[in-house]
Design a protein around this nucleic acid. Structure first.
Lengths: 230, 230
DNA sequence: CTCAAATGTTTCAATCTGGTTACAATCGGG
DNA sequence: CCCGATTGTAACCAGATTGAAACATTTGAG
């Protein structure tokens, strides 16, 4: 799932610029020219991050930020300010607002993207880190390694994420769509049947006999389930 | 063990801001509104770093710094000042006080975190850091020398830091962004792909055959991992 | 037993990612 | 101030990965 960014900015030149570069970096961008409907929309759509111009008509950016912070659903969403004069920075900082960064105008596209990414990285729930052992399978996320019966086995990034997800939810059945939601980065145009292909690839790597799987079982009509063999 | 930071700052708006962002960056933060109990507490808890507002009631920040410097247990703990006027900077840094950096208000969260990290990096016992041997590679940080198969090999500063970082975290996968965060000096906006270039330069120096690396492995879709060859 | 639905398997084009090189900008010593 | 070293970027290329499609096989309801 691509991160989505809500941008509140009245100057169309700037918002166009911001949108263009953030989209180029793989984000989904939604621009609001005024602050009026932002909070309402946000509660429904839950953006990953806000970028607010300090001065926007309809509602002051600072006020908007405060409102975001006071809305339970949005309180923990990171906020980045766009500021024109550095003098304004005082106000931001003086006013406790809990913005996570600010970007002074004018800014370079690269700086914009880098800062957004940096803030998101801070907020990203870190991936599972502890190594995991199931049967004869060992998964070490921090090294991104997989051992099967003592042998190191290479995996692609997607294979690894999917296997790790399964192994951390032993015994639970997941539909293909659930797996796409939780494991795939950008689910937009992925067919559920692609999961089948990855299940096959994983089975080839972990199952002694891929034809009769002992770990990654098919649950006909539902999806797949990962089991610890007896 | 997370580094712990003692912040002496009477303005609650600012101290909240500082705490929030430093905690977000993975530090343990303790805030003091006055300088009165700081030294005593510090002798027991041994913070990794101090951040002092120049003007704090109860005890002047400068005075506090001087006291820290004269306390044997704390003398080598880095100190960063928060200053309002940039004019004060010279005095703090240059003269008697032995502060290690200052952050002029207003500051951006990013700058705050970047400076703290930079100072900590400088203080990471650069001298006592032990030489390191991995396979046929020997790294001596105190001399900044690299030997490969008994031969001294020249490196640039950045190459050396990156290699050293890898060699001290054997087996772990690092994304390009993580490497930029931990190894690069100024938190400027460097393209993640620059890491690739340095990896190549390091490989040329340490790998018998840079085409099929035995130490510095690529982890497709994730980043790089340094291994001790078997 | 039959058949439709579900899943397995293989293939392959498009896309993505990393490798590599060349080079411009910057730094630092003399 | 100049020059070589270092740093970081851009551009291009090769190869790996991804995911859809096509076809095969299995399952189980009736």
């Amino acid at each position: 799932m691509k991160p989505s960014i809500f941008v509140v900015e009245d100057d169309p030149d700037i918002s166009r610029l911001v949108r263009h570069h953030l989209e180029g970096a793989g984000f989904v961008v939604k621009v609001f020219a005024t602050g009026n409907t932002v909070v309402m929309e946000s509660e429904r759509q839950r953006p990953t991050l806000f970028i607010l111009d300090i001065m926007v008509p309809g509602r002051d950016g600072l006020e908007l930020c405060r409102q975001i912070r006071q809305t339970p659903l949005l309180a923990s969403t990171p906020v980045i300010f766009l500021t024109a004069k550095s003098g304004e920075a005082d106000r931001i900082l003086g006013l406790e607002l809990g913005a996570d960064d600010y970007i002074p105008k004018p800014f370079s596209p690269r700086e914009l993207v880098a800062r957004v990414k940096a803030v998101l990285r801070r907020f990203e729930r870190p991936l599972s880190q502890s190594p995991l052992k199931v049967g004869e399978i060992e998964i070490d996320p921090s090294a991104m390694t997989l051992s099967v019966r003592g042998q190191l086995v290479g995996t692609t990034a997607t294979e690894f994420r999917l296997l790790d997800y399964f192994a951390r939810h032993i015994g639970r059945v997941f539909t293909r769509d659930q797996l796409l939601d939780s494991v795939w980065r950008d689910t937009a145009y992925v067919t559920p049947r692609s999961v089948d292909v990855y299940v096959r690839r994983i089975r080839e790597k972990i199952e002694p006999d891929p034809e009769s799987p002992r770990y990654l079982k098919t649950v006909r009509g539902a999806g797949y389930r990962f089991e610890a063999p007896k």
